[in-house]
Design a protein around this nucleic acid. Structure first.
Length: 830
RNA sequence: GCCGAAGUGGCGGAAUGGCAGACGCAGCGGAUUCAAAAUCCGCCGAGGCAACCCCUCGUGAGGGUUCGAGUCCCUCCUUCGGCACCA
């Protein structure tokens, strides 16, 4: 046969057609429903597309194409999250400007995505490194700055590696040395820009409630880590200073037998007694030398040092020792805890080690006194007699913990010794990087100097305490071109070396630009908004464009972005809402994470394991439609699943069969479109439509396979009814668009099928009039009978009892009961 | 340790509380062919039975609810993902 299925011919043909005809340019028509279907845009790495990318992208493409056929206006855009470390590192190694590397990688990614036939509106493509995009990222930053949500802090200790000239993330450090090169790392407090995300902690937590998101919601809630408790003030013997601790277990206050401060706590130096000074100083020094990772190793034995000072437990006036210990986190709560060893595991371990008293104040829920000599009793329970005896606040013995908490908190408020307090794990977001390849932060500072600060050896002081926003008219603030991208010995970053860019004169005074850049998250925080109106030069987006498309109806991307990207983007969106720039509280209505695709060996795909599958080679060997089909047929979208090359053959064979049926013997004889065939077609149409809605693409494909098998049998006899094959081609179109377009054309289609109405199904045709149902005897399946689908119980019972096999199992035993579920089962109990 | 998801044939996976294993891969047998590839058709959980029929067992383990459980409840085991001294 000459006319074989040839993806290598028809795929480029239709990609060209779509491009030339602007088939997927998004247009909004008043009165029509809309769908904003969004992928997480990729970082265009030098390695090109990975098979994991087309998984999510095919899923959204199917949804987008389906929605168009259902008459929706669809916005389905794509772009590039193109700032980032790899291009910069490549620049350091080779001297190639990151802009050049990025442009090349983007071209490759675009080519690859186009070869897969995704129905993106390419006229809306955005690139986060494009000055026209950066201009608006900087604008949003200034909106945050003007609202007081972007601020500088200098007390954030970071991991600074002088040899590498850069700040390292915690996981880039091994045994206190840099992972690369093994150079020493210092804990250094560097001036950083931060965003006040903590101010939105409650809004971000509460906003999760109405979202159609997976378990990601739980992760974000854990990350925000809201916990309700109280701040309690402890007076310090012989000092004016007050020591505040945060606790969620106010009810155990009477059992607090000592207090522990973080080694970094500001009071440590003031309260330490002379005889303890040396020991405490040594302890503080060794704690400071440890990285965050070492500090948080839970298996480590707890250590500490006694300060010599005592605090007064406000509930009973007892003097209890003040210790320092690095198991207390300086940056959480107030950096100090009251230790209740009887009811907290960590305090218990510490008390055991340093022989501190353990006093139980909570009985079990059954009213028994727990044995706390070996382990802490950490559950809620009932106030014990000891609790009452040790407390000036009136407590009833046997009162449940939550009641006791409320009572003591109220008492503390009354005594002005504390108050209810909500604390979060979420920290403010460190928003500056000492890198080149990122958005310049559009801020400058006055410079105090004699003469020109650009001169070698010039002495100057940058007044970082007086940040000034770059004027809107001067945006975008572009990156200077550098020859040398290496980070230097200056924690200010490589931009500090571009002195002609950094320093400028205005009205006779010198100023210095901020030399830190934004983190990679910045561009991805708002790209979904730029897609609405990508060519707008007067604003980041217009209100009309916003109202036309937002919010995002479906957002698909990897679970690795469950917390950071998705939380940061929600944060910006909420700020923009408060500033009146957007009108929805939440940007992403429905979120789905595609599952990881593993290598053929069920291990994570990686270059070192040599199990990486390249989409280009699959397109070459089997075609884009087969790749798309296979990735959807592998299993549920959200599941982690291994790649199996032989399984592509299965879907490729299926597409081949579709081709043969669609280009084979077709009949327009109405008699050939018999009821059986019609039923099969309508069932398939129904199932595929419903499965796309539910993102169950694997079972949708299975339904199409069943239909094709049935139609294939007609091909060699009467011929396939044209209407049947047209319906099949339409439901297949979102999955295998190239093949579908080609078949559609050959079946008489005059134009693209992209906007052809989705076929309707007749509900009467999708239910069989006569069906086979199971018959159970005593709950065990014994036979099956054919009866009318709507048969009543008496009929079904009679039919079941008439069956020979049923008879043999029932025998002459009396029938106690018959259960009949219409269309499902008959169960005879004897 | 805590939070979340998941455990079903040789493999990927289907199953509103109602005949477990749809669909596909691999395998086996057949048709076609000079032959092969491709294609088409059939078989394909385990055990028992000379054999068809048929019977027994079977969805990580153990208990429970139910006429009926892969599905719901309890306990446990394993794998994966996340968080991890957050008071």
């Amino acid at each position: 046969m000459e006319d074989r299925y040839a993806p290598a011919v028809i795929e480029p043909k239709w990609q060209k057609y779509w491009e030339e005809n602007g088939t997927f340019v998004a247009k909004r028509t008043a009165g029509k429903p809309k769908a904003y279907v969004l992928d997480m845009f990729p970082y265009p790495s030098g390695d090109g597309l990975h098979v994991g990318h087309p998984e999510g992208y095919t899923a959204t493409d199917i949804v987008a194409r389906h929605k168009r056929m259902l008459g929706y206006d669809v916005l389905h855009p794509m772009g590039w999250d193109a700032f980032g470390l790899p291009a910069e590192q490549h620049a350091i190694k080779t001297g190639t400007h990151p802009r050049a590397t990025t442009a090349k990688n983007i071209d490759n990614f675009r080519r690859q995505l186009k070869s897969l036939g995704f129905s993106y509106d390419w006229s809306r493509e955005v690139d986060t490194t494009d000055a026209k995009y950066v201009r608006w990222t900087q604008w949003i930053f200034l909106e945050l700055f003007k609202k007081g949500l972007a601020f500088q802090q200098s007390d954030m200790p970071v991991n600074w590696c002088p040899a590498l000239g850069t700040v390292l993330a915690n996981d880039e450090i091994v045994d206190g040395k840099s992972e690369v090169g093994g150079f020493p790392v210092e804990r250094l407090k560097i001036r950083q820009w931060s965003l006040r995300i903590t101010q939105y902690a409650d809004a971000l937590l509460d906003g999760l409630e109405g979202l159609d998101w997976p378990e990601t919601k739980v992760k974000q809630a854990n990350w925000i880590g809201r916990s309700e408790g109280a701040n309690i003030d402890f007076a310090i013997d012989g000092h004016d200073a007050i020591l505040t601790v945060f606790t969620t277990r106010v009810d155990t206050l009477a059992g607090a037998t000592y207090v522990v401060l973080a080694p970094e706590h500001a009071l440590v130096d003031r309260i330490v007694t002379a005889d303890r000074k040396a020991e405490v100083a040594a302890y503080v020094a060794q704690a400071a030398a440890k990285s965050d990772i070492d500090r948080s190793d839970m298996t480590r034995e707890k250590t500490g040092a006694f300060t010599g000072a005592f605090a007064k437990n406000p509930i009973n006036g007892e003097s209890i020792p003040i210790w320092i210990g690095d198991y207390v986190i300086a940056t959480y709560g107030s950096g100090a805890v009251m230790a209740v060893p009887a009811h907290d595991e960590r305090d218990h371990a510490f008390a055991k080690k340093y022989a501190l008293p353990i006093v139980a104040v909570v009985d079990t829920a059954k009213g028994e006194t727990p044995d706390v000599s070996a382990a802490a009793f950490t559950d809620d329970g009932l106030a014990s007699a000891a609790a009452k005896a040790r407390s000036t606040c009136p407590i009833e013995v046997g009162e449940p913990s939550d009641k006791v908490r409320a009572r003591i908190t109220a008492w503390l408020v009354e005594q002005k010794r504390g108050a209810g307090k909500v604390t979060y794990k979420l920290r403010d977001w460190v928003f500056s990087r000492q890198r080149y390849w990122g958005e310049p932060i559009p801020i400058y500072f006055p410079v105090e100097c004699k003469g020109d600060p650009r001169e070698k050896g010039a002495e100057y002081t940058v007044r970082y305490d007086q940040p000034i926003a770059v004027d809107d008219a001067e945006l975008p603030l572009r990156l200077p071109d550098l020859e040398d991208f290496k980070p230097g010995t200056d924690p200010a970053g490589p931009l500090a070396r571009a002195v002609d860019w950094r320093f400028f004169q205005k009205d006779g005074a010198w100023f210095a630009r901020e030399t830190n850049t934004m983190p990679q998250w910045a561009g991805s925080c708002w790209y979904y908004l730029r897609f609405l109106d990508p060519h707008n030069e007067a604003a980041a987006w217009s209100k009309e464009a916003y109202d036309a498309w937002m919010p995002v109806d479906l957002y698909v991307g990897g679970a690795e972005h469950a917390v950071l990207h998705l939380l940061y983007a929600r944060f910006w969106h909420k700020v923009l809402k408060d500033l009146g720039h957007v009108s929805d509280a939440e940007p992403f209505t429905k979120l789905v994470h595609q599952g990881l695709i593993l290598g053929e060996d069920s291990a994570k795909m990686s270059k070192s394991l040599g199990n990486v599958v390249n989409p280009d080679s699959v397109v070459k060997s089997h075609g884009a439609d087969s790749l798309r089909m296979y990735e959807m047929f592998m299993g549920p979208l959200e599941a982690v699943k291994p790649w199996q090359t032989t399984n592509i053959e299965g879907v490729a064979r299926f597409l081949d069969r579709v081709w043969n049926v669609a280009t084979g013997k077709i009949t327009d004889d109405p008699a050939a479109y018999d009821i059986e065939t019609k039923r099969a077609v309508h069932k398939c149409v129904k199932k595929v439509g419903e499965d796309i809605e539910g993102l169950r693409f694997n079972t949708a494909i299975s339904a199409m396979m069943i239909l094709v098998k049935q139609l294939g049998q007609l091909a060699s006899t009467t011929g396939v009814p044209r209407e049947a094959i047209r319906s099949l081609v339409l439901v297949l179109a979102p999955f295998a668009p190239h093949l579908a377009e080609e078949a559609w054309e050959r079946l008489g289609g005059k134009t693209t099928l992209a906007y052809e109405p989705w076929p309707a199904f007749d509900p009467a045709l999708v239910v069989d009039s006569e069906i086979e149902i199971g018959v159970q005897v005593n709950g065990k399946a014994r036979a099956s009978i054919r009866i009318a689908a709507d048969a009543d119980e008496a009929t079904a019972k009679a039919a079941a009892l008439a069956d020979d096999k049923v008879k043999s199992f029932v025998g002459d035993k009396p029938i106690k009961k018959v259960i009949y579920v219409k269309g499902r089962i008959v169960n005879i109990i004897v």
